[in-house]
Nucleic acid binder design. Structure first.
Lengths: 199, 199
DNA sequence: AGTTTGCACTGCGTATCCGAAAGTGCAAAA
DNA sequence: TTTTGCACTTTCGGATACGCAGTGCAAACT
């Protein structure tokens, strides 16, 4: 009873809230690709999504967040598993695993890929994607230190997540440049490259 | 005869030009630490250094460059050695070697260290230092590809120099935070850390 | 010769103001 | 409990203005 998810239309696959959130994001993305991020107002987005302007802010804290959709975060169980030594026990491999978990929530359809390609042409959105990953990485920093398999001070953990972020950025760049490979695979590829080069 | 370096006061250790350049930089650094980067004009710097305002720009292209001193670049021979397989043959070790070559031109005196500590409190100077290293890194990117010991495409080389830059930034951060270790050693330490963590 | 200097010039960066739209608090309505 | 309307604050982009960084050039210097 205490946890939500059943009251209302019980058996629908997606809750009404999720549906509205999706409708908002889709509208925002369409408007952004057609007119640019500054080419539409929140009022116009509200009308397009069929909700009140105020409601938009019940779902997303900002316009760019509306375009990007709900924030994803590292699944608690995956995080916990990592903290206690991770799936494989190898730091690099486990970090990669964690990153894929975040990036690869689900296989994108072809339409979605085309849409994403267009959205990635908008610098402020790319920047926002970067920032989101950076926030996740900060959480990771603590987890890495907690795990502590290798001797690792504050600085070392910071360095590690910075490198992770650089790998992510490079993957994003490749995606922007037209590489069709799914993001998790791009990440794995570049992560593997840097591991090989530094070995 | 064609190369310079002897006409004028022949046997002095430092040429007159070097001496003037140094005087300018020292004046600029003193003014910057005392009044901030925007706390003095180029006219004032000119007077402090005992040259005409116009002359400053014969030595340095900008105010921040005047504060940082002449640009250092990778010695041609070191670069060449790297390109043909480097001192050790191991990519990581050779990159580190090259970086130390650039960072460790000469041991700083204690006074210089104190001065640098103060200069690092000025964000725009830190940013400029970062940019200088980034430019060197771009040259490195080509050299790395030319060397080609490992299979390495454009993206891979880019990723590598980005990581190098992150290591450098982390070393700078440590220095700013008060770590007295000479910069080359800081770089080596962090570079070693990331190599170990990703192995 | 090459280097420094003066001077006139361009242009970049910063401060300021202003209007539009982003984002927030709150209470009524659904 | 969520949505909505409304009034509110804050932030951001554009326009203007100004000071100083930075440039081109030719005369003066060494």
């Amino acid at each position: 009873m205490s946890t939500s998810a059943e009251s209302g239309g019980a058996d629908h696959r997606t809750s009404k809230r999720e549906e509205t959130a999706r409708r908002i994001t889709l509208s925002a993305q369409r408007l952004a690709t057609e007119h640019g991020l500054d080419g539409f107002t929140m009022d116009e987005l509200a009308e397009a999504a069929g909700v009140a302007r105020r409601t938009l802010f019940n779902y997303y804290p900002s316009k760019v967040d509306a375009c990007l959709g709900p924030r994803v975060d590292v699944p608690a169980d995956a995080m916990e598993a990592f903290a206690r030594g991770g799936p494989t026990g190898n730091l690099g491999a486990d970090l990669e695993h964690l990153a894929r978990e975040v990036l690869g929530v689900e296989e994108p359809t072809r339409e979605e890929m085309v849409l994403h390609r267009q959205l990635f042409q908008i610098p402020r959105l790319v920047e926002a994607v970067h920032d989101r990953f950076a926030e996740l990485a900060v959480d990771l920093q603590e987890a890495v230190r907690a795990r502590g398999g290798e001797q690792l001070d504050q600085e070392g953990a910071l360095l590690l997540i910075r490198v992770l972020l650089v790998v992510f950025d490079t993957a994003i760049d490749a995606s922007i440049a037209g590489d069709d490979t799914p993001l998790p695979d791009l990440f794995s590829r570049h992560f593997g490259t840097i591991r090989r080069l530094l070995a």
